[in-house]
C-alpha cells in the first residue's frame, strides 16, 4: 500500500473514496450517507498517511490500532480499506448483501482490516481504552486511535470511558470526534446539547485540539501533535460538514441514515467528478 504524502494526492484519494461511498450506497439500496461522506478526508488521512498499518500488518503487534465506534459509518471504512489494498475494490458493491464480507455495520470477523465490530453507540472509546491500557502494560509504543461520532456523546458509557482514560492518563490514545452537528432526529444541539465538548473533555483530564476535519494538513498535524503529547490522552474535535462533497446532502440531518436513489447518485457522482478536475497541485 502506497503512503500518500502530498495534500493533492490525499485529497484526490478522499474524493475517490466519496465516489465509492455513493456507488456502494446506490448498489446496497440502504445505509448511511452523511457521516461516511464527511469522514472521507479523515479516513483517507488515517489509512494513507498517519497509521502504521497496512494489509501486511494485520496482526503485527506493533501496528497502530484504529477502532471505529460509530459502526454505521461502515461505507467510508470499507472504501478506504479496499483502496488501501485490504480486499478487492469490486467487493465494495456487495455492501449489505447476503453473504457479503461487508456487513451493514462494521464486523471484525468478516472484514479484513477492521479491528473491532461496532454498532451500538458509546462502546468504541472503552475498547480503545483497553487497547491503550494493554500497550502500557506491554510497554509498547503503538498509538491507539478511535473514531467517535458527536451523537454518541449522548451515551453515558462514552463518559465512563472518557473518565477512565483521563484517570489513567492513557497518553497513547487519540480520540477523533466527527463533529458534524447532526444525528438521526435532527441537529445535535436540538436533540441533546453537546456544547461545550472541549471544556468537558478538558475537565476529565484530556488535551483537546480543534480542527477543520476537511483540511488534510490540519488532520495530519493534529495527529502528530497528539502523538507527541505524553502526559494525557488527546481528543481531536474535527469540525466537519455532514454529507460533505454533495451539495444537496450537506448540513442535512435527513441524510444521516438514507442512501441516494439512482438520480441522486448520478447527480452526486457528477459533482464529485467535477471536483476531481479541480484537484491538482496548482489549486492547493
Amino acid at each position: 500500500m502506497e503512503r500518500l504524502t502530498t495534500e493533492a494526492d490525499l485529497t484526490r484519494m478522499a474524493n475517490t473514496v466519496r465516489k465509492d461511498i455513493i456507488k456502494m450506497l446506490l448498489a446496497a439500496g440502504s445505509g448511511h450517507s452523511a457521516g461516511p461522506l464527511d469522514l472521507a478526508d479523515i479516513a483517507t488521512a488515517l489509512y494513507f498517511n498517519i497509521l502504521n498499518f497496512s494489509p501486511k500488518q494485520k496482526t503485527d503487534p506493533d501496528r497502530d490500532r484504529l477502532y471505529v465506534s460509530c459502526g454505521h459509518t461502515a461505507p467510508v471504512w470499507y472504501a478506504v480499506l479496499a483502496r488501501a489494498g485490504f480486499f478487492p475494490i469490486e467487493e465494495l458493491q456487495t455492501l449489505r448483501k447476503l453473504g457479503s464480507r461487508l456487513q451493514g455495520h462494521i464486523d471484525r470477523l468478516t472484514t479484513p482490516g477492521i479491528e473491532s465490530s461496532a454498532a451500538s453507540l458509546g462502546q468504541g472509546l472503552s475498547i480503545a481504552c483497553g487497547s491503550a491500557y494493554a500497550s502500557k502494560m506491554d510497554k509498547k509504543t503503538y498509538q491507539t486511535y478511535v473514531l467517535l461520532s458527536d451523537g454518541e456523546h449522548d451515551e453515558g458509557s462514552t463518559w465512563e470511558a472518557i473518565s477512565f482514560a483521563g484517570h489513567y492518563k492513557l497518553s497513547h490514545l487519540t480520540a477523533i470526534i466527527d463533529r458534524n452537528n447532526i444525528q438521526i432526529d435532527g441537529p445535535t444541539e436540538t436533540v441533546m446539547k453537546k456544547e461545550n465538548l472541549k471544556d468537558r473533555y478538558e475537565a476529565f483530564g484530556w488535551h483537546v485540539i480543534e480542527i477543520n476535519g476537511h483540511n488534510m494538513e490540519a488532520i495530519i498535524d493534529a495527529c502528530n501533535e497528539a502523538k507527541a503529547i505524553v502526559e494525557y490522552p488527546v481528543c481531536i474535535i474535527a469540525h466537519t460538514i455532514a454529507g460533505k462533497g454533495v451539495d444537496f446532502m450537506e448540513y442535512k440531518f435527513e441524510w444521516h441514515g438514507n442512501p441516494p436513489n439512482k438520480e441522486q447518485a448520478r447527480d452526486a457522482l457528477r459533482q464529485l467528478r467535477s471536483l476531481d478536475n479541480k484537484i491538482n497541485p496548482s489549486d492547493l
Binding site: 475498547i127 481504552c129 483497553g130 502494560m137 458509557s157 465512563e160 477512565f164
Partner: peptide, 28 residues
C-alpha cells in the same frame, strides 16, 4: 497489582475495556 485494573462503578466501560485488552492478547 500491575495486572489488576480498578474500574470504579462503571460496568459498561469495564466490559469494553476488557474487550480492548483481549483484542491485544490479554485474557481479562
Amino acid at each position: 497489582p500491575e495486572r489488576f485494573i480498578e474500574m470504579g462503578v462503571a460496568e459498561q466501560n469495564m466490559a469494553n475495556v476488557a474487550v480492548g485488552l483481549s483484542l491485544n492478547g490479554k485474557i481479562p
